[in-house]
Write a protein that binds this DNA or RNA. Sequence first.
DNA 1: TAGTGGATTTGCT
DNA 2: GCAAATCCACTAA
Length: 204
Amino acid sequence: MRLFKREELAVDPLDLARLLLGAVIETTEPEGTVAARLVEVEAYRGQDDPASHSYRGQTARNAVMWGPAGHLYVYFVYGMHFCANVVGGEDGGPGAVLLRAAEVTEGLDLARARRKAARRDHELAQGPARLTSALRIGPEHNGADLLDPASPVRLFTGDDISAQDIRTGPRVGVAAAMDTPWRFWIDSPAVSAYRRGGRVRPGK
DNA sequence: TAGTGGATTTGCT
DNA sequence: GCAAATCCACTAA
């Protein structure tokens, strides 16, 4: 297992998404280290992708998406949760891959303590906000370099996943992207359940 | 076990 | 103002 190289990640998000399946993300805190193997991701591009945060241009929140590949983009959603992305694409151009689900492989006790609602281990990081919660990724990690061995968040290469084991489908919870199958996953109990885009619960 | 309401930031309309 | 790349506690059967 080794850290990724910057040039490996500076590719189109669609290619980066496949690359990240099976890769391992690891966070280190004073209390210990938690590592997880990515089993589900979604690609987000730039101005040609209406579902992307970067579609309408650069803002204070999504500025990291325009930066160099290999950094972490963390954003806040629904007033409660954080989601983590790996920045891809070329410098000066937006692009990122949302980390949706992973299997915790190291630091299980720590992850269980952080995710008290998870009744089974495969639920520890089964979903984008659960993943950040299990790994304790927060706003302080926004813009962190995933390729620096001294960084609190790092990204390692994992198993080679053969193309035939990669499943694709529409992205989850994205109203504007029902016809772009940019969600990628591999068989695992930790893959999150698919939910249709648009307002899931109309009314209220 | 299935269904629903709530927490509460960000940025566009 | 409103909708969003969500999760979980609570309720009813």
